[in-house]
Nucleic acid binder design. Structure first.
Lengths: 169, 169
DNA sequence: TCCGTTTCGTTGTCTCTACAACCATGACCC
DNA sequence: GGGTCATGGTTGTAGAGACAACGAAACGGA
């Protein structure tokens, strides 16, 4: 059962996409590590918390918003907690759940780090594209995510009424 | 020095791109690991060798074509050699250089693995896009690579007369 | 109430990657 | 020839992710 092979156009697009996927994390990690001792994933965790009400999210919700598995997030949050950037506390309403909260120190770190990070994103990604291409990229990435994450469990969604935090009943 | 912030369109595109970059490697690694015990990067190394004349490339050239650093490649090739998929031999023409060569076993592995890998690429990436979007993706990725790898040292290029292999003088 | 199942999260182990240090060879130049 | 520098590659080690196993709390019937 031979599969449908790739056309030249498809092969070119695929090779380039693979190269981007291989190189982009290194660029992001490099800048953040030099400037703040953070992984890009660390930054993502802190950023998601910083945007949440009370700077607090449940681990599961945080994993969803950072496209991560729970074990991975657990390790990362433990390390961030050891550095004083995040706190963990059991959820009063659900004994199984844990709330992660951004500390003042973590908040300060995010604020100090964001400008450099945004500059890097501009320099290496957005400013390389025309406004039209930014729109195309958005649509393409959205289409890919429907295949990469069919259940739509991951990546950001509307937050209308669910704060994602575990509070008192 | 506040940086230029991101517009809504830019932010959306960026968030989605980050999600793709986060999820795609897992999908590729997962299928290849289950079916062949290979990392996607392992597969890339084997595939590049399989397309080279005499199934042989110098380590530096192989690193270029796989978008990898030399230390990383060195570790990977050592492990592939331990599994009998690749051989290393000093280059007769340049005492510093090492030629990596795909063994018959490695060749068989590539041939056996390629169909499943291509099917995965189709299913999770290319078939999610219209032909027009494939072209857009190609152009966008090309534009990004000029920023991510300004020296153009990495990723595939024309192979006109340079075989990339170190042979006898 | 009791038992089975699901959900939530942590931990241990193994593999892989990044980074820096290192060694050997070749190239250049006086 | 003998410095000096550049190039090609390997190795050691420390850190981060994948995966599986585990435990604890909630839920859902019988």
């Amino acid at each position: 059962m031979e599969p449908r092979w790739l056309s030249d156009e498809e092969m070119t697009a695929w090779v380039r996409l693979v190269a981007v996927v291989e190189l982009l994390p290194g660029v992001l990690d490099g800048q953040l590590r030099r400037d703040a001792g953070l992984t890009h994933f660390d930054y993502l965790v802190l950023a998601m918390l910083s945007e949440a009400p009370r700077r607090t999210l449940r681990m599961t919700e945080l994993a969803t918003r950072t496209n991560a598995t729970l074990p991975r997030l657990s390790h990362v949050v433990r390390r961030l907690e050891e550095r004083g950037l995040v706190e963990r506390a059991p959820c009063p309403a659900d004994g199984r759940a844990t709330n992660a909260r951004l500390t003042d120190s973590g908040w300060a770190t995010v604020r100090a780090t964001a400008p450099g990070h945004v500059a890097t994103v501009r320099e290496h990604v957005l400013d390389a594209l025309t406004p039209e291409q930014v729109g195309q990229l958005s649509a393409i990435a959205e289409a890919l995510l429907t295949r990469l994450d069919p259940d739509r469990r991951l990546y950001v969604r509307q937050l209308a009424d669910d704060p994602g935090t575990c509070r008192d009943r």
